[in-house]
């Protein structure tokens, strides 16, 4: 059942203040870029207040996350198109020994391979595993498990059916357990 969320005492500003950090971390996990995540959260805030500020405060959380998740999906679509162009341009160069620009691109989060190893040692491999999930599984996992939305609210935020949310969440948990079996028993 949907968990009732009381209206924030400070109204819209208090709601945004309460959700902004988690929204940023979600966007950063999805994009692996702090700057892109900040841009997405800012756009989501503006779009949310423009379209949904007059809605009941109890509806704000799923509506805000719907806007944010749509922005994240749009960001991924643009990134996929850009990557296809990069691959196409790379193929046209016909240089077999040239490095793959995608593989050679620096980690947007600024991590080196050594950092990644260190993260695994430090237990941040759990978060890295969430980052590695396919986007829809990642969204379902974060909204349900971390943000605390129920299935219906998550479905509304993701723009899909409740059955799809359960499927994405089940696959996410399966993938996480498979990936983390060496780190998590």
């Amino acid at each position: 059942m949907a968990r009732e969320r009381p209206a924030p005492a400070g109204g819209l500003d208090a709601f945004l203040a309460g959700v902004e950090r988690r929204a940023l971390v979600m966007a950063e996990i999805a994009t692996r870029s702090r700057d892109d995540a900040l841009d997405l959260v800012q756009e989501a805030m503006l779009s949310f207040v423009d379209r949904y500020a007059t809605h009941a405060p109890g509806e704000w959380a799923p509506l805000f996350h719907r806007v944010l998740q749509n922005r994240i999906r749009d960001w991924h679509r643009r990134r996929q198109v850009r990557n296809r162009w990069l691959v196409w341009l790379h193929d046209r160069d016909d240089e077999d020994d040239a490095p793959d620009p995608i593989q050679e691109a620096p980690d947007p989060a600024g991590r080196t391979p050594e950092d990644t190893v260190a993260l695994g040692i430090a237990g941040e491999a759990l978060v890295a595993a969430v980052e590695a999930l396919p986007l829809r599984q990642q969204q379902a996992f974060l909204l349900r498990t971390w943000e605390g939305l129920d299935v219906a609210q998550t479905a509304r935020a993701m723009g899909c059916s409740e059955g799809s949310v359960k499927t994405h969440l089940s696959r996410a948990m399966h993938a996480l357990r498979a990936r983390l079996e060496d780190h998590w028993q």
Partner: peptide, 8 residues
């Protein structure tokens, strides 16, 4: 960003 949204 939040203040900009609130002003919006």
């Amino acid at each position: 960003a939040r203040r900009r949204a609130a002003a919006h």
